[in-house]
Every structure is written in structure tokens, then in C-alpha cells.
């Protein structure tokens, strides 16, 4: 037990003192989170903007509601020109009691939206003008839907990716460097099992994964990025640990084959990068073509992503962990077994 504790501590120290590893473990994924988070911040939040000429009761009601963004023009021709150029979907021209909408034919959905909204406000104004209470009333309430703001899918994706990268690289590079520096042979001469050596390294990796999770989520929750966690966020912790184990096993396999550290990181990149892109790290997989979605299902990272997304932001319960956990455990067992078959103590 003291051997296990001392080994874990030794590896933790080795990890913390390696600046390059620290960078790739924490800052590198964070850079992606920050950059994508800032670039994509306003996507999807856009309100429809229309040109307005003139003012009046309807226009001020529209403005107060904030449903549409209004761009004021003094000149009808200028406003219509904007529509003709395709810059704005519609122009609302107010001449006293007379309201006129000129809309672009190209984007019928947007035009119809604008027409519907303006029409609604005109009707409301008419009812109000009669002085009668309205016979039908209407109430609207916001519903949380499944389509997410970018930060909501970026955080689980980049977290899964960051954890996968550091687990794969951590185990592959440790294994190769220990083999090259004869540490493995030296350990083989000591009365400890290979299992306790490996599990102490795994312990460091899982600890690192938890810290990564805390940091990434913490930063994504800053007001600039605006991540909102669901109530079941803590279910991400078991997922994080299983993911670490699975990718640790993958690193062991890579490390068993690679002869040098350079070869190990190249091989790890070749494995991890395509997997990251195809698993929805940087964009929601739902937006990908169907065949790609099917292909991505073979990657454990895809399932880890799905699970993370479901529990961190979609508020799904423990049932959302079943498939990802099964895939990650299965992957860890198969790959871990292969790694133990091809494992070599020395060059």
C-alpha cells in the first residue's frame, strides 16, 4: 500500500513538474473552449431585424416587445433598397394610420414571421382602439428546448476531448519513456506487481481528469461564456472516470507499440484527432450527415460526448449513462486486454 501511495505521489510530482504536459492538459483544451466559446457566442441568438420608416403606436408597441429588432430609416426608398439588396427581410412603412410592409420574396419563412408579428400588433392596436376588453386572451411562456447555445455543447465536447487527450498521452508517453529509460526493467526487479504500478499512474490520470472537469466547467460558467449546468451535472463524474480508464487503456496500447516518445505522440494524435472531429467535440454531431453520425458511433469519445451532453446540460437522469458507460467499459476491457498482450518490458 505504501508502494502504491509513493508511486502515485511520484507520478503526480512528475506530472506537475512537466510544463509541456500541463499546457496540453489544461491550457490547450481551454484555448479551444475560449476561442470557440467567444466566436460562437451570438450564433442563433440573432433577432430578425427589419427596416422602419415613420413612427406611431404600433411601432412603439413593437419596439417595447423586443420581438423584432427595428432599424429606423427616414427615407422609404432607402429602406426598400435594403430589402432589395437582401440585407433585411422586410421594411415597415408607417404613414399615419396606414401600415405597409414590403418584404423580400427570397426568404419566405422570415417574411412570413415578420408579417405575422406586425399583423398581430396591428390587430392588438385595433382592439385597443375600440375600448372593448378583448374576448380572447392569450398567454405565452418560454420552454427550454433541445437546441443548445454553442457553449452548452462545446463544454461537454471539449471536456471529453481534453480528458481523452490527456489520458491517452499520459499513459502512452509514460509507458514509452519508462521503457526507454529502463525504469520498467528496474520496477520489474522490485517486488511490486505491474498492476500496482499501472493503477498508480491511472490514479493520477483520473485525478487530472477531475481537475480538468472542474476548471473547464468553471470557466465555461463565467458570464462571458454563460454555460448553464443542469441539475444532474454530477452524473458527469462517473462518466469522466470511465472515460479516463478507457482512454488510458488506449494509451497503453499505443505505448506498447511505439518505440520512441515522438512515435508515441504521433500515433496518439493519429488516433485521437480524427476521433475528436467525428465525435462532436467542436460541433454538434446532429448537424453532420447521417452516414457520418453512423460512423461516429464506433468511437468511444462519441458516446462519452453524448453522455456528457445529456447529463451536464440536457438534464437527463442516470439512464443517460447506460449506453456510454457500457461502451466505455467494453472499450477499456478489450483495448486493455490487447495492450497487456503486446506489452513489452524492454526495447
Amino acid at each position: 500500500m505504501t508502494a502504491f501511495r509513493t508511486l502515485s505521489l511520484a507520478m503526480l510530482k512528475g506530472f506537475v513538474r512537466d510544463k509541456v504536459t500541463l499546457f496540453f492538459t489544461f491550457l490547450f483544451p481551454l484555448m479551444f473552449l475560449v476561442i470557440f466559446g467567444l466566436i460562437l457566442r451570438d450564433v442563433g441568438a440573432d433577432k430578425t431585424k427589419i427596416a422602419v420608416v415613420g413612427d406611431g403606436q404600433v411601432v412603439s408597441a413593437l419596439r417595447d416587445s423586443g420581438v423584432l429588432e427595428l432599424e429606423q430609416y427616414n427615407d422609404v426608398d432607402a429602406a426598400v433598397q435594403k430589402v432589395k439588396d437582401g440585407d433585411l427581410p422586410a421594411a415597415l412603412i408607417v404613414r399615419g394610420q396606414q401600415l405597409e410592409v414590403r418584404f423580400a420574396q427570397s426568404d419566405q419563412v422570415k417574411s412570413a414571421t415578420v408579417l405575422g408579428i406586425v399583423n398581430g400588433f396591428v390587430d392588438k392596436a385595433n382592439v385597443a382602439a375600440t375600448g372593448q376588453p378583448p374576448r380572447f386572451t392569450f398567454a405565452a411562456e418560454k420552454v427550454e428546448d433541445a437546441s443548445l447555445k454553442p457553449i452548452q455543447f462545446l463544454t461537454p465536447g471539449i471536456l471529453s476531448w481534453g480528458v481523452a487527450v490527456s489520458a491517452v498521452f499520459g499513459s502512452a508517453l509514460t509507458l514509452v519513456s519508462w521503457r526507454r529509460k529502463q525504469v520498467l526493467r528496474r520496477i520489474r526487479l522490485a517486488p511490486v506487481s505491474a498492476t500496482s504500478v499501472l493503477s498508480s499512474r491511472l490514479l493520477v490520470s483520473t485525478g487530472v481528469a477531475l481537475v480538468q472537469g472542474g476548471i473547464f466547467v468553471g470557466i465555461a460558467m463565467l458570464p462571458v461564456f454563460g454555460l448553464k449546468l443542469s441539475g444532474s451535472w454530477w452524473l458527469a463524474i462517473p462518466l469522466l472516470l470511465l472515460g479516463t480508464i478507457a482512454f488510458f487503456a488506449l494509451g497503453m496500447l499505443v505505448g506498447a507499440f511505439a518505440k520512441t516518445e515522438e512515435a508515441a505522440s504521433a500515433a496518439a494524435n493519429i488516433v485521437v484527432l480524427p476521433m475528436a472531429f467525428l465525435s462532436g467535440t467542436f460541433f454538434p454531431v446532429e448537424q453532420a450527415p447521417a452516414w457520418l453520425q453512423a460512423v461516429s458511433k464506433i468511437f468511444p469519445l462519441r458516446h462519452m460526448n453524448d453522455g456528457m451532453l445529456n447529463v451536464l446540460v440536457r438534464g437527463k437522469g442516470i439512464e443517460a449513462l447506460v449506453v456510454p458507460s457500457a461502451v466505455l467499459i467494453g472499450f477499456a476491457l478489450v483495448v486493455g486486454f490487447l495492450a497487456s498482450r503486446v506489452f513489452k518490458w524492454e526495447e
Binding site: 509513493t6 508511486l7 511520484a10 510530482k13 529509460k181
Partner: peptide, 17 residues
């Protein structure tokens, strides 16, 4: 040797084994 460990830590780690 283990990576990034000091002389004392190397000895203590090997000793712990």
C-alpha cells in the same frame, strides 16, 4: 530513474517499492 524527481525522491520511490 523516474522522470522529474529529485535525488531524494528517486531513492524514496525506489525504497517504497
Amino acid at each position: 530513474f523516474f522522470e522529474k524527481l529529485t535525488a531524494k525522491e528517486q531513492l524514496q520511490t525506489f525504497g517504497a517499492l
